[in-house]
Design a protein around this nucleic acid. Structure first.
Lengths: 349, 349
DNA sequence: ATGAAAGCGCTAACAT
DNA sequence: ATGTTAGCGCTTTCAT
């Protein structure tokens, strides 16, 4: 074990009481300047650090926040976590990360675990499988701070941070239309997720604007967000087996997008000559792909930061918060060769 | 705030003392079967969870472990963290992740922060800038549990988990030689890192085996591990400006490898026709690149798991541990088109 | 077999 | 201005 100094050590060394030391350390005014200086200097000298566990027990706060995401090894989430950590660290909180792997069972288990660890608040991005939100509702009703980001809960009134999914999907779809594609299939995450619905609406709106009828056969849900190779493979095969098969794919999640490209190549299809692709992904290397991928990118780092600011404000609020906001950031469309029929266009530089 | 039940609540409800309840909950034998059953049932009913903070204060352990890595948004580290979490979770520890961004100053600040948070042990992968290990030595001498992984400390006698870097580098270099390259430059991380030295040795050994003299001009260090675009760019330019410029690149870190490919393409060089590439990376999408990248892959998830097992064993050891082991795993070479002069070879499937 | 009391490190009334 | 005391939730002697 690694022991460190306590307030008692200081008190003993200086012949004071622990409360005096505590007061000196906390800059209380009801204390002699002399004594204060003495304590402060000694504390500095021995490099005294208050025991955060004792403080937590006293204050009934753990100074930690729980994070629920689908997967750490995912560009979007690792960037978001980066943003979460950056704020949490500065405001004196530490972060406990849990992964759902898109399973509802694991999600509830994680939340339970975090609660039993007495986290002060929760930062949640729902799993693809989740439809029952009652455990969050229960906590929220009891006044427990929760902020949703990205995959937000539709019916729970709390702070949320998300992007303009409608607009992102609209722009990506329109990009495909603009570059000459008309038969655009939409490969998306579980319909359970609000973001899936929003993106679907953006996709439909772009089609409508350009007078292209929506073809229900072109809409496919992969309920595990591209994590199960087999699922994606089957889905793509179904699309390719259609009588009137699509000439472009608009895809809506990180793993799904890269997995699709992988499968199409494996099937020997040329992108974009045989089939074009545009998709949501926060990969840093989409430009290096063959072909370079046209992507909708989300400000994941910033989303993490904002959500964390909101959560800590909620946690530290003196009075119960009843006004909640939904912050909506903009996505960024980056067009590259995967959506350009007429030869490759490489944006490097 | 979100309150939960305490042992006191149970005691009051059942007309017992807190110590009796505690004993019942902890399965002590000096207790009546009746009472025990009563307590257990009631606890179950109200879904009682012991307060981990109170336990920590009592036991003088925080049940948390600190992790020090360069960057979360890095394939290798995010996979390793995944492994770390998986073990830590099961053994009842939570994980506090900190990032150095390859800075020594941030590394020491992080360690200090983790220590003041009373983590029970440390899982460390050194920053590229770090040469002074005295803060780790100090902690280790005091008996504080530390396990190094990947970028290990050469002179500190504790558990370590790493890969056979020599062999990985040897194989990658030999692959380049086998496919017809002779002028192989080596682009590597800071020389401070032991892994850089080991990989350099593997590179040299492969050259030597095939009768190729080592050219010091072909050895370049990027001290920020590819995180600073400008640094990589300058380095590559230096290599290309050589009179006898290289026809292949062996690169040794995740970000460096992908960044290199990016820069080469930006310069209009064809890979592998103008210059071949093989590198260490744990990217899941190296196969989708143009060209598909030949890579040395590390079992990052497993490394994280093993390191965490070791650390927790250290933490929970009853007697001081004096025998330390270094676990060395094997890398995996995956050859693709980026090292095949004679036309592209795509391994999809 | 059970209860009372002390103590882990700290803060905050409540004395003085 | 400083000391004494109680208490956060829990375990663990020490009594009984």
């Amino acid at each position: 074990m690694f022991e460190s100094y306590t307030i008692k050590d200081i008190a003993k060394a200086l012949g004071l009481s622990t409360s005096t030391v505590s007061r000196a350390l906390n800059g209380s005014y009801e204390i002699g300047a002399e004594t204060k200086k003495l304590v402060l200097e000694y504390a500095e000298k021995i490099n005294y650090r208050p025991n955060p566990i004792a403080l937590s027990l006293k204050e009934q706060k753990s100074h930690s926040i729980g994070v629920v995401v689908a997967e750490v090894a995912n560009n979007y989430f690792s960037q978001a976590i980066n943003g979460i950590e950056s704020i949490a660290y500065n405001r004196g909180y530490h972060v406990i990360i849990t992964q759902t792997h898109e399973s509802y069972a694991r999600e509830t288990a994680n939340v339970q675990h975090l609660i039993s660890r007495h986290v002060d608040g929760l930062l949640v991005s729902l799993s693809a499988e989740t439809t029952d939100l009652s455990h969050y509702q229960y906590l929220h009703d009891k006044g427990f701070p929760i902020v949703f980001f990205d995959r937000v809960a539709p019916n729970i009134e709390t702070h949320k941070v998300t992007v303009n999914n409608f607009q992102g999907a609209f722009e990506a779809t329109e990009e495909l239309i603009r570059t000459g594609y008309k038969k655009i299939a939409h490969l998306t995450n579980s319909y359970n997720l609000l973001i899936s619905k929003e993106r679907l609406n953006g996709y439909k709106a772009a089609l409508e604007k350009h007078g292209i009828p929506f073809n229900p056969e072109y809409l496919k849900h992969c309920n595990h967000g591209g994590m199960i190779q087999h699922e994606v493979e089957t889905t793509i095969q179904e699309l390719l087996n259609l009588d009137d098969k699509p000439d472009a794919l608009f895809i809506t999640s990180d793993r799904l997008t890269t997995n699709c490209l992988y499968i199409l190549k494996k099937l020997g299809l040329r992108v974009p000559e045989d089939i074009a692709i545009a998709g949501f992904t926060n990969s840093d290397v989409a430009e290096l792909f063959d072909p370079p991928l046209s992507v909708v990118r989300q400000p994941a780092f910033q989303i993490g930061q904002i959500a964390t600011e909101m959560l800590i404000n909620l946690i530290e609020s003196k009075r119960p918060v009843t006004e909640f906001v939904t912050e909506t950031l903009e996505t960024q469309l980056i067009t590259r060769a995967s959506t350009h029929k007429s030869g490759k266009k490489n944006n490097a530089g």
